[in-house]
Design a protein around this nucleic acid. Structure first.
Lengths: 243, 243
DNA sequence: AGATTTTTGTACCATTTCGAAAGAAATTCC
DNA sequence: GGAATTTCTTTCGAAATGGTACAAAAATCT
């Protein structure tokens, strides 16, 4: 007999009252709640959104990452994102669409985080060290324990039944392999590696070890062990450390 | 207005009639439906089971493997196992217990499949070849597409929220690392590897590549690529093939 | 100010899901 | 053959789930 009306959360009332005030203040005090882009405030016609889609999507991503697609209910999502179901549906579509959008956001976000490590001016070893450090930071992040890699853990689970998700997972894995292999080839051409090195094979090893780190992080393997694994893999594929 | 009574499946009637006949026949014709163990038929007192718990558990394992814990409903399980919910509940407990039992069965089953590869009489290279071949066969098996590794894909997803499952996943990963490392050390002591090889590091690489193969199999990476990945990893950790 | 448009908040619906109760069926023990 | 026991089948029910309808609210345009 637990009625839905039994919510004792006062935030809705506050939010309703605050949103109008916040928007009004935004125009004068400059502290916008919706963060209008620096130069272009062509506001739309109707009632303004009470949330920023970007941060809501970020919350959704965290929720999906925590429990996976099926175990994350729309109630969970709506609570985590701080918006109610109709708004969610209106902005992001149904649950699956939201999942896809969250996944795309994850890919863009992580690609951006890995970008500095792929600077061609770095040595192979420096690049690998940065890649592993970035990966470990991503996989160990999360307010509710290490959340692993979305591609490897969350999306790959759905890849079985959803061809579209599967295609994205394929692309993500392939992209990882290809990017790292390219970096290995560059290193080989610059004499950092012996001339006939099998760069594709080494790249797959690096990819695999990163995936394994994602899995292990989810099993709560301590950070030090993950870092040790990264170091030993680097030594194996890039030659032992010079001293 | 779809009533539950609308099942047009006649199997229940047949099953009911058949089970009595089958059991009766079993006693005389020797073709038992319940497969009494070779030497010990101390049948229990009440109505006999109409299913073999072992094969039902196998079906449950396949169902969980296909869709994961949350996305597999008790209806799915009951349909896949061929037994109805109350029997399922009475035999295996609730959904989570069934999941744990299925996972334990998976571990036992795969351990048995890997056992021949770990024969100490094999060379390191032979052992690795057998291990990868076994893994690929396991991960690509499944009536509904490649199902990957239960530990890596299915259980690791639940590991986030369920400490007991997490502990099993930890143990599974650690066991894999340790077993392979032991085999590497033996090879090193017998001169198959240079004296100061970092066996733990190599073992983790092998573990990681196997996990990556599981992930890739689920993304429908073709078998040939998985095998190529196995070969190149073997060459890397056990030295290139002798000819 | 009033019309228009977009979003929000509440309530609701149909279905699914997990779990359990109750009686029928099948077997062994006496 | 009858009592006891175990399992099977049917059915139910409470809660959760994904999704939606509808009116109030908050903004812009005229």
């Amino acid at each position: 007999m637990v009625q839905k009306s039994g919510r004792s959360d006062p935030s809705k009332g506050l939010a309703g009252g605050k949103s109008s005030k916040a928007a009004a203040k935004a125009a004068e005090s400059g502290k916008a709640a919706v963060a209008p882009p620096p130069g272009a405030p062509p506001r739309k016609r109707g009632r303004p959104r009470a949330f920023e889609p970007e941060v809501a999507l970020k919350k959704a991503l965290a929720a999906f990452r925590k429990s996976g697609f099926s175990a994350t209910s729309l109630d969970d999502l709506s609570a985590a994102m701080g918006i109610n179901r109709p708004s969610l549906y209106g902005t992001f579509g149904d649950k699956r669409e939201l999942f896809l959008k969250a996944y795309q956001r994850y890919r863009a976000e992580t690609n951006a985080l890995f970008a500095p490590a792929l600077d061609p001016k770095l040595t192979l070893r420096q690049m690998l060290e940065m890649v592993y450090a970035t990966a470990i930071n991503i996989y160990l992040s999360g307010d509710h324990g290490p959340s692993g890699c979305f591609t490897v853990m969350t999306a790959a689970s759905e890849a079985m039944s959803d061809p579209e998700i599967r295609a994205i997972v394929q692309k993500a894995i392939e992209n990882s392999d290809r990017t790292i292999a390219g970096r290995f080839r560059a290193a080989m051409e610059q004499g950092e590696l012996p001339p006939k090195t099998d760069c594709d094979a080494l790249a797959r090893i690096v990819s695999a070890s990163i995936q394994s780190i994602a899995i292990r992080s989810r099993a709560h393997v301590p950070r030090a062990e993950l870092e040790a694994m990264a170091r030993s893999t680097i030594d194996l594929v890039a030659g032992p450390a010079r001293r």
